[in-house]
Nucleic acid binder design. Structure first.
Length: 580
RNA sequence: GCACCCAUAGCUCAGCUGGAUAGAGCGCUGCCCUCCGAAGGCAGAGGCCUGAGGUUCGAAUCCUCAUGGGUGCGCCA
């Protein structure tokens, strides 16, 4: 399926032949032998670094190895010509038939073209969003939701068994604050005057929750002390907030496989069990931490605490897991939660955090390393800020003034597709500019539009051909004879299509979905490029006078649309059939 | 003070487990629209890949140091 892998196999076979002949020594490490698209298309269709990689271990000159390899590679019927260039690159030009076969293969495979088995069914847990259940989600959560969902989809496409998971922080003090805030709204629902003092959430999104509570319990909690209602309102309010969050996620097109409650870890012995596991490894002890140098907290005083020896697993200092009053710190349930994930048998854990949680990466990795005896890797993606703009001007939001941009606001303004694609065009560790006007702008500079437009153009030309009586279903196009597709612009597009499986594997290996978005922009550019050439050279247009030629060209176009559709599918974006 | 992240064209950013002459869009300059969708197209100028060392046949990419920016740093999650 992956043309680059197929040719790489051919290169490896050629190396083996040379080894059998004694030209090359046996036992060479071949992992670094790569077959890649050349930087400059003039160099050919593919290039391999084999000779340069093998030169040192084989104790031969790279150019000599290259010449010997080149001679063997010409035996492969798919390889039309071979030449040695530069320090020892072997440039390959493939037989035109190889390119011409590609669209046919894609038409037969559909969106499965590019699927990879590299994951080998390994179980992966992607934990993302995990916003506190104290209010609606904002744009920062949105980037996390989109990136996490795309990573999950990407790994699924690359052959992993993926679970999307959300950790509900419903065990800390912030849900008590939520409960008190809802209590105020509840009182308000009875016409009382209330005051939102320091330490409560004044947002009006709690107004309906207060009313709902009134409907449920009547005046049972009115004029009662906190001890009578705190627990019940906490549960009620948390559930209401989670309903809100689930709805927002749904509006974005994100569906979690599991919501995992922090509270469920308390009183069940799970935290204790995780800590006991660490204690059994001699990683828990009583001790006193040094104050941080340089910036010493005002109220610093030496204190003996229960600590996790995270330094034994790469952290800078050991971390407290218990407060002085004997209750757990937030870190303890986090440890227990990850212990649970490990126990559930995942081969890989991925956490998506905001960049402001960067300080917790080392300790979390240390915990997972300790709990799994180094067997389960934890990859933590830190997401940088999203900066909002409106028409080029910074869009300031201030919680105090109440002009707080929620995830829902953004989705309502630009739609889930534009929001998702735009959020996936940048690396996670780069800050992202999000301009409300630009993400819906229909122009070359907006990649969302550019990629969608390419897909719509193909759909449009297929409709046009169908109107002219050409059979344009995938099965018919798969039967077309593509031997007439010899133009370099057509081959460039086919070459881009050949890169798709490779792109998927690189993106999946690095957990970087933005690579899919970058690839789609390039693929769209190749399609638009070919289309534009058709303006000057009528022979390159997709719809020709005779049906057979038209079908051949449409096969290439339709294959492109299939790959765009598959790529957008990973990003969670719906491909459109027309732009109107 | 320490840790982590970042630094690529005037601007916003890509850059493949290290590969050949570092790419795209915007902006700029010059051409082009009787043509399947010109909500544009083609061409051109524009770079010490922050700096200095190192590893390597080969470094924007890996390592060290420096500089500049972001984030965080014991009973908040």
């Amino acid at each position: 399926m992956n043309l680059f892998e197929q040719i790489r196999t051919s290169v490896l076979n050629a190396i083996e032949t040379l080894q059998d002949e004694g030209t090359l020594p046996a036992g060479l490490a071949l992992e670094n032998v790569a077959v890649e698209p050349p930087r400059d298309p003039a160099h050919g269709d593919m290039a391999t670094n084999a000779a340069m990689v093998l030169a040192k271990p084989a104790k031969q000159k790279p150019r000599d190895i290259a010449s010997a390899l080149a001679a063997k590679l010409t035996d492969d019927p798919r390889i039309a010509s071979v030449d040695v260039a530069g320090p020892g690159f072997i440039n390959l030009r493939l037989d035109a038939g190889v390119w011409q076969a590609l669209p046919t293969m894609i038409l037969k495979a559909g969106r499965a073209y590019g699927r990879s088995t590299m994951g080998q069914g390994r179980k992966v847990n992607v934990e993302f969003v995990s916003a506190n259940p104290t209010g609606p989600m904002h744009v920062g959560h949105m980037r996390g939701a989109i990136v996490g969902d795309a990573i999950a989809a990407l790994l699924d496409y690359a052959g992993h068994e993926v679970t999307r998971e959300y950790y509900i922080n419903d065990g800390g003090a912030q849900v008590d604050v939520l409960a008190r805030s809802v209590y105020l709204r509840y009182c308000e629902a009875f016409g009382r005057d209330v005051e939102f003092v320091e330490g409560t959430y004044p947002g009006d999104y709690l107004v309906p929750v207060g009313h709902a509570l009134k409907d449920k319990v009547g005046d049972a909690f009115l004029d009662k002390g906190e001890q009578f209602w705190l627990e019940e309102i906490r549960d009620f309010a948390t559930e209401a907030m989670m309903d809100l969050i689930r709805e927002d996620l749904k509006a974005l097109g994100v569906v979690m496989d599991r919501f995992y409650s922090e509270k469920s870890l308390y009183g069940t012995g799970q935290i204790e069990a995780a800590i006991e596991d660490l204690r059994g490894k001699d990683l828990i002890y009583r001790g006193t931490l040094e104050p941080p140098k340089g910036k010493k907290p005002e109220d610093w005083e030496p204190r003996e605490q229960t600590l996790f020896r995270s330094t034994a697993h790469g952290d800078d200092v050991d971390r407290p897991i218990m407060k002085s009053d004997g209750s757990w710190t937030y870190f303890a349930p986090d440890i227990a939660y990850h212990y649970d994930k490990i126990t559930r048998g995942y081969d890989l854990l991925i956490d998506i955090f905001g960049a402001d949680h960067g300080g917790y990466v080392k300790r979390m990795k240390a915990a997972v390393s300790a709990l799994s005896d180094g067997k389960v890797p934890l990859d933590i993606k830190l997401l940088q800020l999203v900066k909002l703009y409106k028409n080029g001007e910074p869009f300031k939001m201030s919680k105090r003034a109440g002009t707080f941009v929620t995830l829902r606001d953004v989705v309502d303004m630009v739609g889930p597709d534009a929001a998702r694609f735009t959020m996936l065009t940048r690396r996670n560790d780069a800050a992202l500019d999000f301009d409300f006007d630009k993400v819906v702008e229909q122009s070359r500079e907006n990649p969302v539009f550019y990629v969608q437009y390419a897909h719509a153009r193909v759909c449009s030309v297929l409709r046009k051909a169908a109107d002219a009586g050409v059979a344009t279903d995938d099965a018919s196009l798969a039967g077309a004879d593509l031997s007439g597709l010899t133009h370099e612009a057509e081959q460039a597009l086919a070459g881009k299509l050949a890169e798709w499986p490779r792109c998927v594997e690189i993106a999946a290996r690095t957990n970087e979905p933005h690579r899919i978005a970058t690839y789609l922009s390039e693929l769209a550019a190749a399609l638009h490029g070919l289309w534009n050439r058709g303006n000057d050279e009528p022979g390159l247009r997709f719809v020709q006078d005779d049906a057979a030629t038209t079908q051949a060209k449409l096969a290439l176009a339709r294959a492109t649309a299939i790959v765009i559709s598959a790529g957008l599918g990973i990003l969670g974006v719906t491909p459109v059939e027309e732009m109107r």
